[in-house]
Amino acid sequence: MREQNLPRTQAITQIIQEADTAVQRFLHHDRQIPALCSSLDLTASERTAVHAYTDVMRTMIRGNCDWHRTAGRYSPQARPLITPTAQSRGGAL
């Protein structure tokens, strides 16, 4: 969130809110899948493929959430990977 000049804790809060919104949108649309499949008159095989795809998406979202929670990268105590001095020289750390 450097482009918005937000302090780290505020940027983390904003990112969490954006992620929560995206997940809520996915869940909203996911609940509509059965009705969509019916309106498209999909076969049982096609419905199985659609549900398999959304199951994979759900698993990916869950895995991403779990990783972020345990990795510590986005915790308020985490240190930046690039220091301001190294960044001005074009280097890392």
Rank of each mutant, 00 (worst) to 15 (best):
M1I: 06
M1P: 03
M1N: 04
R2K: 12
R2M: 09
R2F: 04
R2C: 11
L6C: 02
P7S: 11
P7I: 07
P7Y: 06
T9D: 15
Q10K: 14
A11V: 05
A11P: 02
I12G: 02
I12H: 07
I12A: 03
I12F: 11
I12P: 04
T13H: 05
T13M: 09
Q14I: 08
Q14D: 13
I15M: 15
I15K: 12
I15R: 15
I16G: 08
I16D: 13
Q17Y: 09
E18L: 14
D20A: 03
D20H: 02
T21L: 02
T21I: 00
A22T: 13
A22E: 14
V23N: 04
V23I: 15
V23P: 01
Q24N: 12
Q24G: 05
L27F: 03
L27Y: 06
H29R: 15
Q32Y: 05
Q32W: 07
I33Y: 04
P34V: 14
P34S: 07
A35R: 09
C37F: 00
S38D: 05
S39F: 07
L40P: 06
L40N: 12
L42S: 01
L42H: 01
T43V: 06
T43C: 08
A44F: 03
A44D: 10
S45W: 13
E46W: 09
E46L: 12
R47D: 00
R47P: 00
T48R: 08
A49D: 08
H51R: 10
A52G: 07
T54F: 15
T54L: 11
D55S: 12
D55T: 13
D55R: 07
M57V: 14
T59Q: 14
I61Q: 09
C65P: 00
C65A: 06
D66S: 11
W67D: 00
W67Y: 10
W67K: 00
W67E: 00
R69Q: 11
R69V: 01
R69F: 10
T70W: 00
T70Q: 07
A71R: 01
A71T: 05
G72V: 05
R73T: 12
S75D: 10
S75L: 09
P76N: 13
Q77S: 10
Q77E: 12
A78H: 08
A78V: 10
A78Q: 08
A78M: 08
R79N: 09
R79Q: 14
R79D: 07
P80R: 14
L81C: 03
L81D: 06
T83S: 15
P84N: 07
A86D: 10
Q87M: 06
Q87C: 07
S88H: 06
S88V: 02
G91W: 11
A92V: 05
A92W: 01
A92R: 06
A92S: 08
